[in-house]
Structure formats: C-alpha cells, structure tokens
Amino acid sequence: MTAHPAPSEFEARTNATFEALMWALSRPGLTRDLPAPGQAGIVEALLDRECNVHCADPDLARIAAATGAALVTQEQADHLFLDMLPGADALRQIALGSDLYPETGATLVCNARLGQGAALRISGPGCNGAVDVKVAGLPDGFWQMRARLMRYPMGFELFLVAGAQVLGVPRSSQVEVI
C-alpha cells in the first residue's frame, strides 16, 4: 500500500466545503466562501447512510438520497435543507436534541440574502465582541422564535446560504435584532 497524495475532485470539493462550514460555525456572523454555489455541496460533504435528511427541493432530495441517507419528515430529520422557511413556526418542528445528547439537535440549512435586510447583533462563543450582520429572506419573527426554542445546550445549528457564501449561527450564539 503506497501513498497516493492527490485528492480527487470530490475529495477537494467536500474538504473545502467542510472547511467553510467549520469556520462559519466557529466564527458566527462572518461569511465564508463555499467552493460552489448552493446547498448540494453541503449535502455531499456531510451526509451518509447514518443520516436522516429532509430536503424541500426534490432535486436536492435526489442528491441526498444517493448518499444513502434516509428521506424523512422535518421532525425526524437531523439535517434539513430548505429553500425558504414558510414561517417562523416551522422552526418548532426542528429536533433540538436532549440534555443527555445535545449533538442530536439538527442542522438547518436554508437560503437567505446576506448583507441586506434586518440588522442582527450576534454574540457568544466565536465572536470577538459582538458581530453585526444583515440578513434578509427569513420569515418574520424568525430570530425571536429561535431564541424562544433554544434551551442550551439543546438547540439546532443554522447555516444561511447565499450563492457560494455561507454564514453560520450555532446554538451557542445569542442573536439580537437591532
């Protein structure tokens, strides 16, 4: 068995996608560049047979199913890929994990417009002081509903995707609408 130190295109892409997600979650509110626009790259970097996934977009659902992940309802999903949330109430259906296993709280990926819309102030781990961002395209009352649902360490992670940009909001972040 000899070394073969050249990553395939798939490996390079998924590696770079994960790196963007990792830093997005490590530094909430700071946008990172994905190697390709859209949510499909996140699907292939994270999902596997062990996952339960919910995809709003049927094309994305096909890609997710090809990873071996099971297609399930929103409540059962550990990963949710949505275009736009219908309303803030939809957040109620997202798994928050348990005190014993907080990591079973879901990861929610949805589309948004970054750099415009509501002004937010994010603080908590990963923020060197408060971070101000603008996010549009989320339903009214989204952030208030998020704050109401979080029972840290229970909660869910949020990735907002705008083209090839991603912004992460872990459950440990406090988000204030200013």
Binding site: M22, A45, E103, T107, S172
Partner: peptide, 18 residues
C-alpha cells in the same frame, strides 16, 4: 469518505456546543 463525513458532522456539533 464515510469516516470523514462522520468526523465533519461531529466536529460541527462539537464547535456548536463548546
């Protein structure tokens, strides 16, 4: 690739719940 995907998913959760 499967092993890496699992580590990626778990690392994200570890970062989210320090």
């Amino acid at each position: 690739a499967s092993a890496k995907r699992e580590i990626r998913r778990k690392t994200l959760k570890a970062i989210a719940v320090p």
